[in-house]
Design a protein around this nucleic acid. Sequence first.
DNA 1: CACATCCTGGAACGGTCATTCCAAGATAGT
DNA 2: ACTATCTTGGAATGACCGTTCCAGGATGTG
Lengths: 197, 197
Amino acid sequence: MPDVKHFDPDAALDTAMRLFWRQGAASTGVQDVVAATGLSRSSLYATFGGKQELYRAALERYAHGRSQLLLGPLEEDGRGLPAVHAFFARLIDTRCTGEFARWGCMVSNAHAGAENADPAVRAVLERQHRRLRAALHTALLAARRNGQLADDADPETAADVLALLAHGVNLRSRAGADPGRLRATVTAAITALTGGG
Amino acid sequence: MPDVKHFDPDAALDTAMRLFWRQGAASTGVQDVVAATGLSRSSLYATFGGKQELYRAALERYAHGRSQLLLGPLEEDGRGLPAVHAFFARLIDTRCTGEFARWGCMVSNAHAGAENADPAVRAVLERQHRRLRAALHTALLAARRNGQLADDADPETAADVLALLAHGVNLRSRAGADPGRLRATVTAAITALTGGG
DNA sequence: CACATCCTGGAACGGTCATTCCAAGATAGT
DNA sequence: ACTATCTTGGAATGACCGTTCCAGGATGTG
């Protein structure tokens, strides 16, 4: 069976993901992907199907790749409150500096765009939001066990608040918000929600 | 001077605004605007210029129209904390029920899309964010004067947090978030930030 | 009614969109 | 080396993109 591809599908999908992430699905043409990946239209369509399926695959890759880089440590970090602080520190750092500065979050971006007309895309958005919320919730429960929470603090709604706050950070970072101010803002939010002084 | 237009420019711009609001600039074609407004390409271009200028005008109309409906009352309401609660109640109600349910906020949407590549658009986004933040800040200062704030509450960062939270609400409402849960979430956030029990 | 002026409808423009197709090239098994 | 099978580059597709243009209709003025 001679069916060895002349290119790396993973690398190509990663390149496409970055285009969709930065520009959105509607503003990214198949032509852009072809030019950026270097492979031909034939190979692209044969490997990934159409544009919509390519976007879905790119979004999945983001969820399991880039998103994992932020959520994974939060899910595994059992320290409680410090884990939450560390997560937001990483988040803001990622959103505001380095290669992906001003790109925001591909999931948050998909929320705001016409991409979410696709039910499959919406399912990913829901899954990722639930995952973020659950990770924060777990960390807050650990914080409670560790005695890092005030008695009147509610891990349920606090997780909801922080999850919404993350979306806000993602959005504002695309407009070039000051990372220092974002840090101060989320720190104040966490402190207030956990009853810290 | 026979120069009376055969249509109402305000109504046409409002129709275009709704298309851009719901679908985003990239996914809305001039053809869509022509079909929705009923006027011809000639009149559209003669009145508004090109598509980009039309989008800018629509965004401005949103800022001074729809956005004003939410921010205006907040800016004029001197009650302090109740004004903040009322603002978020109106916000969530607007985002989740009625004609504009699941449309999110045109300003938040523009943050996440390719629209903000236009410096003029970015300027509007900054202006609107500053306005929201300032209105919340003013309300929190009034709350302080009215003795509705705990001593350790900080109106500066609290305003920042709530402004980011509003973006989060706008985003999640597009995915069909449960308004009741959003209300509980923002209520918890306001309570925590203002030191209420 | 004649005129000048503006607005309107609709055709037409080149360019780009996503997608398909096919001949030519590369590969693995024999 | 031959063949079967798959991938590849690139042309070609029809549809739609934003934009321009122009003939003709409507309007207010003399």
